[in-house]
């Protein structure tokens, strides 16, 4: 038998100043209480969690205490923003409030699809990069837009698998693969993941990380689901580093084709 290729040791994922050994980024949207949040952060073994920014009167302010107690980094988002102007101000407020210049840039087109508005997104990305931010844009699975976002200086690109909260999984693996093949920055699949197999698939396609929230926070047993996603992301990543077989359309025997017995006719 030919000698096996040496094990490819995974290196940490670097985004800006951050170094992550876990390739699962956890969103906190939809979490029902602080204990569940602590449980899913612990079970997922994530090192980076997202938070949103909202007016003080409308929110429970202690989420930061919970996140910090878990010793993970915080990635603020600009969720809900529909214009570049609002997203830029929200990012600047987040930097001031949380002391991080990393931002998950989200500029949505409408409340029904929650799809990114590509024009506003690119405008906001450019402004934030020039303002010193480490920008992680939530984008559509359009390879051209991903390239444009990279070219204005985004630290990563985060294409959707499917619309936010749908759990439909990767709708266009071909587009995602094209993004992965051309990107020089990390590709993080963000949104639309429902099942651990979707997350594993994203990693198998060569994505660098997966960001998900609802799939865990709205599961019947969030902590258990967080563990399932931890394992799935790890499995997909390990597979991507292990050289998967080429797909083919006709069968190829795995048992030896020689040395078969030749029984005499009955």
């Amino acid at each position: 038998m030919p000698t096996q290729q040496p094990v490819e040791v995974d290196s940490p994922l670097r985004i800006g100043d951050l170094e992550l050994t876990s390739r699962l980024i956890l969103g906190t949207g939809g979490v029902t209480n602080h204990q569940v949040l602590t449980d899913i952060i612990t079970a997922s073994q994530t090192q980076l969690v997202t938070v949103a920014l909202r007016r003080v009167s409308a929110v429970d302010q202690s989420i930061l205490d919970v996140v910090r107690a878990c010793n993970v980094s915080v990635l603020p988002n600009t969720a809900g923003c529909k214009t570049a102007r609002d997203a830029v101000l929200t990012a600047q407020l987040a930097r001031e409030a949380l002391g991080t210049s990393m931002v998950k840039l989200e500029v949505i087109a409408d409340d029904v699809t929650l799809l990114p508005d590509p024009v506003e997104l690119l405008t906001a990305a450019e402004k934030l990069v020039s303002d010193g931010f480490t920008v992680l844009p939530y984008t559509s699975d359009d390879p051209v837009l991903a390239r444009r976002l990279e070219s204005v200086g985004c630290a990563a690109v985060m294409p959707l698998a499917a619309p936010i909260g749908t759990g439909l999984g990767i709708r266009n693996p071909h587009a995602l693969q094209m993004i992965v093949e051309s990107a020089k920055v990390p590709v993080i699949v963000d949104a639309g993941i429902g099942a651990p197999s979707h997350a594993a698939f994203a990693m198998e396609l060569g994505c660098d990380a997966v960001l998900l929230a609802t799939a865990v926070t709205r599961a019947d047993r969030p902590e258990q689901m967080a563990r399932a996603f931890r394992d799935a992301v790890l499995a997909g990543r390990t597979a991507a580093l292990s050289g998967m077989i080429e797909r083919r359309y006709l069968a190829r025997a795995s048992s030896p084709t020689s040395g078969l017995i030749e029984p005499s006719a009955p």
């Binding site: 906190t28 949207g29 939809g30 949103a52 920014l53 909202r54 007016r55 003080v56 929110v59 930061l64």
Partner: peptide, 10 residues
């Protein structure tokens, strides 16, 4: 005047 802080969010 806008006064904001972190809350749960995707």
């Amino acid at each position: 005047i806008e006064l904001v802080t972190a809350t749960q969010g995707g």
